[in-house]
């Protein structure tokens, strides 16, 4: 609210006016970002013979065959389904355990709270490569290897700390008087949390869910190590098919384009909170 108010009162001739110089910088930067993605899109709409024989900035012989291959072949499209399943499971688990913990960190002092918070963060810092082999053995021994839940649990390693961190930042912004008033009004903790508190930090929950989704969606090493057939992720499908079929560039590019779509969709919903979310709710 305060932000919007200052936006309006901001004078036209600011110290940093949105002049042409800035527009040029932004255009150059965005071109740098989008050019490789454009090239991928371009490749995905060409036939393999065209990719290898001619060099052109746009498809001469427009074809959707690459996409058709992916969307009709179960070994391809099941990759997307598997990835989406474990990403959603992971997001749900991460947010539901992180909510109460973040509340505790933002409201109370308790024995060892600072150490615990840092210890949680160290898990975000742990290189997945360190955990790949032990995870493989752990989940094999409990019979969870090659299941969606295994990957979802493994991704909790870095998503739970992140969710706690983000949610704690957002919860800190909610005045404590609200809690106290609710308790005086006779709300129990559970009802207060569900009915009053969660709607107040809805944007924070959205942002945390977005980040869990994102980091689980983009991860390759753990999801590849923990799956073989039934729960094989799209990332793993892509790397394995590359070596097997001798570089089918068109299909590879089309698969790449399709992996960007879910991200682009969710980003649209949280666009106004992206910046604050990346600051982990601490602005």
């Amino acid at each position: 609210m305060t932000l919007a108010a200052t936006e309006i009162s901001r004078p036209k001739s600011r110290v940093l006016p949105w002049v042409n110089g800035s527009a040029v910088v932004m255009t150059l930067y965005l071109v740098f970002l989008l050019l490789p993605i454009y090239w991928l899109l371009n490749m995905s709409l060409k036939t393999n013979t065209e990719i290898l024989s001619t060099f052109s900035l746009w498809p001469q012989d427009l074809t959707f065959d690459n996409y058709r291959t992916i969307l009709t072949d179960p070994s391809w499209y099941m990759g997307y389904v598997n990835s989406l399943i474990y990403v959603v499971i992971n997001t749900v688990i991460s947010i539901s355990v992180a909510l109460p913990a973040a509340y505790a960190f933002s409201r109370y002092h308790f024995m060892g709270d600072k150490h615990l918070f840092f210890w949680l963060l160290t898990n975000r810092m742990a290189p997945p490569a360190v955990f790949a082999l032990p995870f493989f053995q752990l989940y094999s021994s409990v019979g969870l290897f090659d299941t969606h839940i295994a990957v979802a649990l493994a991704h909790c390693l870095f998503n739970v700390p992140l969710a706690v961190w983000i949610l704690e930042g957002f919860m800190r912004g909610v005045p404590k008087e609200i809690d106290e008033t609710a308790y005086i009004d006779g709300y129990s903790f559970g009802r207060f949390f569900m009915k009053i508190f969660m709607p107040l930090i809805a944007s924070g929950i959205g942002v945390a869910a977005f980040f869990c989704f994102m980091f689980s969606w983009v991860e390759l090493l753990l999801s590849r190590t923990l799956t073989s057939v039934d729960a094989k992720s799209i990332a793993a499908t892509m790397t394995r098919t590359v070596s097997a079929s001798g570089m089918d560039w068109g299909v590879l590019a089309a698969a790449g384009v399709l992996t960007i779509v879910p991200g682009a969709l969710v980003i649209y919903f949280v666009r106004n909170y992206i910046a604050k979310g990346f600051a982990l709710g601490r602005v």
Binding site: W217, V218, E219, L220, I260, A264
Partner: peptide, 8 residues
């Protein structure tokens, strides 16, 4: 957008 592209 680049942040949401899977790493592979």
């Amino acid at each position: 957008l680049p942040l949401l592209v899977p790493w592979n």
